[in-house]
């Protein structure tokens, strides 16, 4: 592999990693608060279509990304209202959100299918650092969104493990009744977590249509939202491990079109199953491990909370 090819691969790994990490981080926050959101795929599609549309209209990529995040937050809040406030089943509500998002994004974006992208991100110039060989060249080519994703990952880790809000959020996800007794507003906390999660999924969708594969097409999310759901489990609900998983899964995606040039006789389609199978394997290991100790999954995940019923 030539040096240029290697840099190209690494950039691709980071790009797909960014896409997956943003969405997975959002899902992690929601799940940590006890809300399983299977609407990531649909939320990404909504973020994707609005990000692209705003990019075409405004010409500003950052503005477009911001709007994609806002749309994601509002859209995911539908799931929040239905499953958290009204207490409907989280699985059904989340799936319906995905169906709604895929349908609505196709509906809204139909006139933009062949539009040229209107805005793009520039790589952040790291000055002399970019001279440091392959790594420097790769980092030199990273755009602001990847840096933002890393910053958000660190912020999420810090928020969850080092702040009062994170403590409350995790408590709500472990035992809503206990958190409620301690005076934590359960419904509000979960709504905020779901909205933040949606914002990140929306941002991920915007990143997809603005950066990774500029343009809009129905079905452009292609199941990436489900990988995000898988990543949270693969990373055992830990932001750092999820980052590792995002780079790993992103790397597998980046390798798919390159397998032939690398001389590997593996079907790229078969390889694209690996993230899902790995996630199942991790889930089985986690289940076996949790026989003698509490599970790493938030204990209250999937459970609606109403004070009268405790």
């Amino acid at each position: 592999m030539s040096r240029a090819e290697l840099v190209g691969l690494l950039i691709s790994v980071i790009s797909f990693g960014t896409l997956l990490y943003l969405a997975a981080l959002g899902e992690l926050i929601a799940e940590k608060s006890g809300v399983l959101n299977l609407g990531v795929e649909g939320t990404m599609a909504m973020g994707g279509v609005t990000g692209f549309l705003i990019g075409v209209q405004s010409g500003s990529a950052w503005f477009a990304l911001l709007i994609a995040a806002l749309v994601g937050a509002v859209f995911a809040s539908i799931h929040g209202i239905v499953s958290v406030v009204m207490g409907a089943d989280q699985v059904v509500s989340g799936l319906a959100l995905t169906i709604l998002g895929l349908g609505l994004s196709a509906f809204l974006g139909k006139d933009y299918v062949s539009s040229a992208p209107g805005a793009k991100f520039n790589a952040i110039n790291l000055g002399p650092l970019s001279d440091l060989g392959v790594v420097g060249e790769t980092l030199f080519s990273m755009n602001g969104v990847s840096w933002l994703a890393i910053a958000l990952g660190i912020a999420t880790w810090f928020m969850l493990s080092r702040t009062r809000m994170g403590l409350s959020l995790r408590a709500v996800g472990e035992s809503a009744a206990t958190a409620d007794a301690a005076g934590t507003p359960v419904v509000l906390t979960r709504m905020i977590a779901v909205a933040i999660g949606g914002a990140m999924a929306g941002m991920s969708g915007g990143y997809l249509t603005l950066v990774l594969a500029p343009g809009w097409n129905e079905g452009t999310t292609a199941g990436r939202g489900w990988i995000a759901v898988a990543l949270v489990i693969f990373g055992a609900w830990k932001p750092g491990r999820v980052l590792f998983g995002a780079l790993l899964f992103g790397g597998l995606i980046a390798l798919e079109p390159r397998l032939q040039t690398l001389g590997l006789d593996v079907s790229p389609i078969l390889m694209s199953m690996v993230p899902y199978l790995l996630t199942i394997a991790v889930l089985i290991v986690l289940s076996i491990r949790s026989r003698n100790r509490p599970s790493v999954a938030p204990a209250a995940i999937g459970l609606a909370f109403r004070r009268e019923e405790r």
């Binding site: 994170g166 995790r170 408590a171």
Partner: peptide, 19 residues
């Protein structure tokens, strides 16, 4: 909360902003 430490359980609900 079984998976929280003793200290986390104690301060839950009246923790300082930064924990």
């Amino acid at each position: 909360i079984p998976t929280f430490s003793v200290a986390e359980n104690v301060v839950l609900g009246s923790a300082p902003t930064l924990v």
